[in-house]
Write a protein that binds this DNA or RNA. Sequence first.
DNA 1: TGTACATCAGTGAACGCGCGTTCACTGATGTAC
DNA 2: TGTACATCAGTGAACGCGCGTTCACTGATGTAC
Lengths: 207, 207
Amino acid sequence: MKKNSYHKGNVRADLIQAAEAILNEEGLAALSVRRVAREVGVVPSAVYNHFESREELLAAVAADGYQYMERLVDRLERGSGDPSQRLRRLAREYLQFAAANPNLYRLMFSSDVVAYRLHPELEQAADTSFGRLTQWWYGPGNYDSTRSAVKYPNALSVWSIMHGAALQMIEGLIQVDPRHKGAVDGLADAVIGTLIRGLMPTLSEKA
Amino acid sequence: MKKNSYHKGNVRADLIQAAEAILNEEGLAALSVRRVAREVGVVPSAVYNHFESREELLAAVAADGYQYMERLVDRLERGSGDPSQRLRRLAREYLQFAAANPNLYRLMFSSDVVAYRLHPELEQAADTSFGRLTQWWYGPGNYDSTRSAVKYPNALSVWSIMHGAALQMIEGLIQVDPRHKGAVDGLADAVIGTLIRGLMPTLSEKA
DNA sequence: TGTACATCAGTGAACGCGCGTTCACTGATGTAC
DNA sequence: TGTACATCAGTGAACGCGCGTTCACTGATGTAC
């Protein structure tokens, strides 16, 4: 392909990829339309042939991230071992993903930046991940996609504790270096282990 | 006090208060130095008599938020009831705080916006909250302030599950309306209840 | 009690910046005849 | 096979914007003598 030709090919895909790279390396603040365009070698206004706005570009990046989540749940469903073993594996993989892609992880879960409600395909991606985890747990027949706290406390708790641990790690609120894989696994084991066993034993010890 | 006098009094406190109001009502993006100054009735450059930079102002706002966390832990320590009852109460109060002050909550826990490491008083405030929870649990003699995942799995898990639930609620990832106090309590009960009981019973049921 | 002066906390104008987005345009490509 | 033309995806210049921050300044206040 000639350097200065029009119709460069898959500019849309290139933009998303460049955006992901910038996000990972320099964070969300550096991810501007102009910057992404520059990186791809295109003029800023060209971006608007592929995305309606900056936010739509960000939504596309986030949606890309959810594909990774999907794969995690795939492995949960198809994996071997008893349920608690699978859950422990899920926990490790989940935190490893967050540790390796902190800025992407943040973007995926902050409606502050990308309003889910405005990007149905994104909301659906998030729903699917949670829904499949829930169905694995409660059986397909029992899932009604409302994600009610009362109806699915177990799935909700797994999601909450993993999300909380991931963010505390990413934000540096706990002494776990995201670049140290062993430490990340240790964190995963600690929280999912506690959740599986429950606090009752130590609490009654206290009483 | 005269309207146009210099030396207006507690401009610093006013700035923090105005910043909190803007944050709550319009979100972080609206919280600019110029905007806060305008709200207080002062020229933008006057802000720099009280804060070195925008980030320092934000750090002051976040530090203010931590005082609320302190009070939660106070009540945990001094409250009545057995440990698990106290923990359940803490969970409710924690989520109610997050529900009532979502933008402040986000600011407090995102190093993206305010780099903790650069604001020691802020890092200390965060440490204190976690440390006191841990000490309540393990006894004062056993706390060494490293917040290691391996050493304090119980306190860490409580923190993680509450943080995760709070953020999912705030970001609209779960079907809980933050303005509905009953629903927020329900969420708190669900996650802390699951954590206390543990997943073992349902997991072995599955196996 | 009155005066000189240092200090403090404001003012007002200006800086350079990168941003998201719009617009009229134009070159390359694919298709119909 | 050659030509006319619609479409698509680029270009380039410009828009208005609010931002964080700096600077020389000045009015009000408190203190020392």
